[in-house]
């Protein structure tokens, strides 16, 4: 019994990481209807940037985040204004194929720069620290990851619904032309949205790098986890994304408990089941 409760708790906490993978995807889809196939590779890029920063300056990965986040944000802004804005329009092929191309480029650039050897960010004592709750042992790092995910999502929610920036995001998402009439330059607004999304991706990348080892090839898998969390939670609902991440995480830990080879497969199956019974996700945004 306690074993299964433990599985459940680990799954929920793992879901926090997946929600972080998903939050950026969800944000840019919400603002500009763009699905970024390179999202997973950008997460891995952030992990490598974290690695280089920790090595170069001899700092803790959390300190490295202070550099990685702004760098990711700048990459996001430049990428959006330089390339992705040109792909937006009624046709879905250009954004899809261009981000797919980006994915291949990033992956191979990382391979060229860092080789295929698995790497890890070392965060010292925090990696193994844990607290005991009753007879459960909960790792500090997963707990912290989950707390950060909740904070990031709450922050995004606040930004989206209570700030001038968020108002601009919603307006451009509603009607690009009319937003432009109000003095919003959509190219710039989209750039800001991508910058923010990649800053969140930076957080995800660093936490991923501390938690597990990574190599340039694993980006696709992270994209899929993020995507599954978004769809399970329901498009356009950012708290739903957290719920989606948690469901995915729990499905994976249950799968892994039954047979270690089933971890990822169980997550995919949970996703397909949700798609079969609730095609709009569990918590689709209410239309008013």
């Amino acid at each position: 019994m306690i074993e299964w409760i433990n599985v459940l708790v680990q799954g929920v906490l793992l879901g926090g990481l997946y929600a972080l993978f998903a939050a950026g995807l969800s944000l840019i889809f919400g603002v500009m209807r763009l699905v970024n196939i390179a999202h997973g590779d950008l997460i891995i890029l952030a992990a490598y940037l974290g690695l280089s920063t920790t090595i170069m300056f001899g700092v803790h990965p959390f300190a490295a985040a202070l550099l990685v986040l702004p760098v990711m944000a700048i990459i996001g802004y430049v990428l959006q204004r330089g390339i992705l804005n040109q792909t937006l329009g009624p046709d879905i092929l250009p954004p899809l194929l261009v981000t797919f191309g980006l994915s291949v480029i990033i992956q191979n650039a990382l391979l060229e720069g860092y080789s295929a050897d698995p790497q890890k960010l070392s965060a010292g004592a925090i990696e193994t620290a844990s607290v005991n709750v009753g007879s459960l042992t909960i790792g500090i790092l997963p707990l912290l990851t989950f707390a950060i995910a909740v904070a990031v999502i709450a922050g995004l929610q606040w930004m989206f619904y209570s700030t001038a920036l968020g108002r601009g995001f919603r307006a451009v998402s509603d009607n690009q032309d009319i937003a432009q009439l109000m003095g919003l330059n959509k190219a710039h607004v989209f750039g800001l949205a991508m910058a923010l999304a990649l800053a969140v991706t930076g957080i995800a990348g660093i936490l991923l790098g501390i938690r597990t080892s990574f190599d340039p090839s694993i980006g696709g898998g992270r994209l899929i986890f993020g995507f599954e969390a978004v769809i399970i939670g329901g498009l356009g609902n950012i708290w739903g994304t957290l719920a989606g991440g948690v469901i995915l995480g729990v499905a994976q830990t249950i799968g892994a408990k039954i047979d270690p080879g089933w971890q990822v497969l169980a997550g995919h199956i949970a996703f397909l089941v949700v798609l079969a019974i609730r095609p709009n996700g569990l918590f689709p945004r209410v239309q008013h």
Binding site: L96, G220, H268
Partner: peptide
Amino acid sequence: LIFRLKGAYFAIGTWVVAEVFRLT
């Protein structure tokens, strides 16, 4: 199943299916 996903999400859905095949 995957025809329920639109546009780019359909694309990623097909990828999930391929992963299910690989893992299976």
